[in-house]
Design a protein around this nucleic acid. Structure first.
Lengths: 197, 197
DNA sequence: TCAGAACTACCTACCGGTCGGTAGCTTTTT
DNA sequence: AAAAAGCTACCGACCGGTAGGTAGTTCTGA
């Protein structure tokens, strides 16, 4: 793992995230990635050890990128309910971020040879997301939130997020927004009921 | 397409659904499928035209299998809220049905060469599921359900189902049940509020 | 000058798919 | 009844193509 990121390596990583996001781990070929980076396949090996290492490097980048995105969403105060900023930013994020599309493509069914390495990264990322939501929720409802209710709402919100992630992948934009709207209703109802006690 | 399903073809299809569910379209090899079926790769071509046709045949089987499963769930009356039977049967279904695992694996990111053929099948299956839920919902709340509310709850329930499907793939059994429990809370709250008006 | 990034050429392994041929059963023909 | 022909499922061998990866050489920039 090189500590310095040269411009050439940057081009390789950019090409790789595009190819992996578009065709997955198996479907993306090193020749294609090299071509997109403007070099030959053999020259890749001046920058990365092998395909696995390349994928892992892209994965690290993507995780950091998404962690920053989530942090920014939770830094802004949510207008109506905790976690709202994150959910409502997903559509634009999906359109803009190659790293996000990469993560969504490979998250649920990761490439078999890298399964264990990836699972750990996903796990801590999801834990962080859940922690962010929980603190936002506690701030929202004040001090009257039992651990059990926090747990339930946390699971529900993570489920909602997965549901929106999936919608980004295989449903069109129109139905994504309909789903988001519908789930916001459920979420709003339950949180309101929580606040009233 | 042979109209009669010989025992040998049946063995091939059984082997194929296992391999496709486990390794995906690209990751499953015809040699492996043939080996599981007890024959050589070349002999596969006495039963199916090529890999695409084999995958499509398995896909048809899986769709029919899941349609029957969903119909059975909605045939029984739901104890507390519409769609409950389906959601609460998913975990056992995932453990038991190779066809279900096959569908989950290939639903969100289908193999590129078959994208269009598959999308149509998924679409009609999902539409049927949504229709089943909507009629169950209408029966549950009585005549006081506006089209707009039915639409919202439909989107929410489909979102919940996707969320549970995803949970089956990459979360363990314990957290699946936690998520199911949490989402049932949201669903219950919103439907209760719908019934009261 | 010399390290490293690029190239050409090549390797092995595996993929989906085809080919010619064969064993064994069924059907037709004499 | 028996021989001849056809059919089905199977096989080993092989094809073209592509994958990831390596060896050895040349180019290039500080």
């Amino acid at each position: 793992m090189p500590s310095t990121t040269t411009p050439a390596l940057k081009r390789v990583l950019n090409a790789a995230v595009v190819q992996f996001a578009r065709h997955g781990y198996e479907g993306a070929s090193l020749s294609g990635i090299a071509a997109d980076a403007g070099i030959r396949k053999a020259s890749l090996y001046s920058h990365v050890k092998n395909k696995n290492a390349l994928f892992l490097a892209v994965f690290e980048d993507a995780l950091h990128s998404e962690a920053r995105f989530a942090r920014d969403c939770f830094a802004r105060p949510d207008p109506k309910w905790p976690g709202q900023n994150y959910c409502e930013s997903l559509l634009a994020r999906y359109a803009d971020s190659e790293h996000f599309r990469f993560l969504l493509r490979t998250a649920y069914i990761p490439p078999e040879p890298l399964f264990h390495e990836l699972q750990e990264g996903y796990e801590t990322y999801m834990q962080q997301l859940l922690a962010d939501f929980t603190t936002a929720l506690r701030r929202h409802v004040g001090g009257v939130l039992s651990d059990r209710d926090a747990d339930i709402m946390g699971h529900a919100w993570m489920g909602m997020v997965d549901s929106l992630h999936v919608a980004l992948i295989y449903i069109g934009q129109a139905r994504f927004e309909a789903r988001l709207n519908a789930l916001e209703h459920l979420m709003g109802d339950s949180i309101a009921r929580l606040v009233k006690g």
